[in-house]
Write a protein that binds this DNA or RNA. Structure first.
Length: 545
RNA sequence: GCGCCUGUAGCGCAACGGAUAGCGCACUAGCCUCCGGAGCUAGUGGUGUGGGUUCGAUUCCCACCAGGCGCACCA
């Protein structure tokens, strides 16, 4: 991007305030895209905010501010990009940007084939995004699927914004659940051998246990225990599922290794030295209440075994030691009660509280034929990622999982996701992309961009489309601030809509040369932004459908 | 009982604390001699209840009502 006009204006506004003897930080929240295009391209309510503080009517303050801002802008190279500043309504200051600004942004996007859309805001900060991390005891469920879609998309977005992102899967490859898995397979092997067995209810009931038992019966590799073999078997399945879903992890972190390297003991020793660990009732406790948790938490049970928290503390200690400055964890809603104790641990280890972001990914309820599908992990009856993938495909699945805020429940209607019609938002967006590709294919005018004059784009729909393209930057900022790719799905639908409206009223090809070249450039920019956006979400960008 | 999420049009959803609360589906009426009709245009219709904070509340706070999920020396 040539000018980050939003940042630039925030600076100017803050300086102007200082000059007027008022001071207030103009966080991006105070300089905003107005919902309605009639109120300009950027808008600030800061005069309204200041009104009480300085006991003056908002419009008076706004009037002083506008004068000061105009003066400063006149000295700035970007001053020409602001066409008008108006005080409107109760005291909003609305900035009307020059069409030239939008033209130059569009040219830049096309000239760089989308490179200009990227930013360096992340300043190469090392971020570790941990998600899915399902126990290798069964196939991935829809809950994991949503985590996979959201986590992967946020990782892509942060990467696009200049963070140094690592995607990690934490592998619970030892502990109770793995033991139970091993037992489950062992019992099924005996059963297959004709023995009469009593299969406990808390064991894994699914048919896949038989599959593993059959393979294991043929003989295990040297030195491999049955439970590890079983976990490895399932892990291969999980990897394949994620691969087919288009999610690639940079790193798989083994809990077992953590123990082997003595890092759990190390971490607890460290906490002990800091005075955050004590013994009571034969168990060892972490003083999490000291960091805002409701009650202290056991880390070593009275039988001598670690609770889940102990390796997790060590694991997060390692994340920081490996150099990551920002940790983002995606968890299912069942882990909600676990947030405070892990945050407490991170703080006790001497890290800033807000360097750990925990995002709860709410469950998706699956509907088929208008009816909700119920699931139960214990009985081995749950909708798997594989089933959703087979039924609706990767594109629809990924897009649908992000169509609601991550923290909100999601109703996933398989029938709609399958439809190739206007009811299906994925196809609405993809259709716009395909349509543009089709036009560009028929276009004699290669865009070439550099010497193209976009100032002939004056129609209402053209200007709306220009501005909508430009809003991509703000949408990414929102995704970063909320740590949620959700807004991107909303934006892409709006962009596609804006394009379809333009297309319906104006011809791209077959008008006069100058106009055709300008419009070809415009729609190419739309194509690039849609392609970037869909790419970040992990959805394909078909050139024809 | 405690915690989290959600209550907006017939249905599914949107709106950093802002300006006349938007969109899709459905329903009604239109738009293909023309770059892809998987599209576009128009019409109908709405903030769970009661307080509070604010210049301004769908949004924040409190209480209540309704729905979903979670609450271990499980992972």
């Amino acid at each position: 991007m040539k000018y980050d006009i939003q940042d630039l204006l925030i600076d100017v506004i803050e300086e102007s305030l200082k000059g007027l003897g008022m001071s207030m930080s103009v966080r991006p929240a105070y300089l905003d895209l107005p919902g309605d295009p009639r109120f300009g391209d950027l808008s600030t309510n800061i005069a309204l905010q200041l009104s009480k503080q300085v006991s003056r009517p908002p419009r008076d303050i706004a009037s002083d501010m506008v004068a000061a801002i105009k003066k400063r802008l006149a000295e700035s190279p970007a001053g020409v990009l602001v066409e008008d500043i108006r005080i409107e309504g109760p005291g909003f200051i609305n900035f009307y940007l020059s069409p030239n600004y939008f033209y130059s942004e569009i040219l830049e996007i096309v000239r760089t084939q989308g490179e200009a859309l990227k930013s360096a805001k992340g300043k190469s900060l090392p971020v570790l995004i941990e998600f899915v991390s399902a126990n290798p005891t069964g196939a991935l469920s829809v809950a994991h699927a949503r985590q996979a879609a959201v986590g992967d998309a946020l990782a892509s977005i942060l990467d696009f914004m200049g963070f140094k992102v690592t995607r990690e899967y934490y592998l619970n490859d030892e502990g109770n659940q793995i033991n139970i898995l091993g037992n489950s397979v062992e019992l099924r092997m005996k059963e297959l051998a004709g023995e009469k067995i009593d299969f406990p209810e808390d064991h894994y009931q699914g048919d896949y246990i038989y599959d593993i038992a059959k393979v294991a019966k043929a003989g295990l590799p040297q030195g491999i225990e049955l439970r590890d073999f079983a976990a490895g078997f399932i892990l291969d399945v999980i990897r394949k599922e994620l691969d087919d879903f288009g999610v690639k992890f940079d790193s798989w972190y083994s809990q077992k290794e953590l123990g082997k390297r003595g890092l759990i003991e190390d971490a607890l020793d460290y906490l002990k030295k800091q005075g955050f660990v004590y013994t009571e009732d034969g168990a060892t406790w972490f003083k999490s209440t000291q960091f805002g948790d409701d009650k202290d938490r056991v880390v070593i049970k009275s039988d001598g075994a670690y609770t889940y928290l102990a390796p997790d503390i060590a694991y997060h200690r390692e994340k920081y030691r490996r150099g990551f400055k920002w940790l983002i964890n995606f968890w299912g809603p069942d882990h909600h009660g676990y947030i405070n104790r892990l945050k407490a641990a991170v703080e006790a280890l001497g890290n800033p509280k807000d360097s750990l972001s925990i995002i709860i990914v709410q469950l998706a309820t699956i509907y088929r034929d208008g009816k909700q599908l119920h699931m139960s992990t214990r009985k081995g009856q749950y909708i798997t990622l594989r089933e959703v993938l087979d039924e609706v495909g990767k594109d629809a699945a990924r897009f649908f999982f992000m169509m609601r805020r991550t923290a909100s429940h999601l109703d996933f209607d398989l029938d709609i996701a399958k439809k190739h019609s206007s009811e299906n938002p994925v196809y609405y967006v993809q259709y716009a992309h395909a349509r543009i590709c089709s036009i560009l294919k028929n276009s004699p005018a290669a865009s070439g961009a550099c010497d193209i004059d976009l100032s002939v784009l004056k129609e209402k729909e053209e200007l709306a489309l220009l501005k909508k393209i430009w809003q991509f930057y703000s949408v990414l900022d929102i995704c970063l601030a909320t740590q949620d790719p959700y807004m991107l799905t909303v934006y892409l639908q709006a962009l596609a809509e804006s394009f379809h409206k333009f297309y319906d009223l104006h011809r791209v090809l077959g008008t006069d040369d100058k106009l055709t070249r300008a419009r070809v450039t415009l729609i190419e920019a739309v194509k690039i932004v849609i392609a970037s956006g869909l790419g970040l979400l992990g959805v394909s960008r078909p050139e024809s459908m």
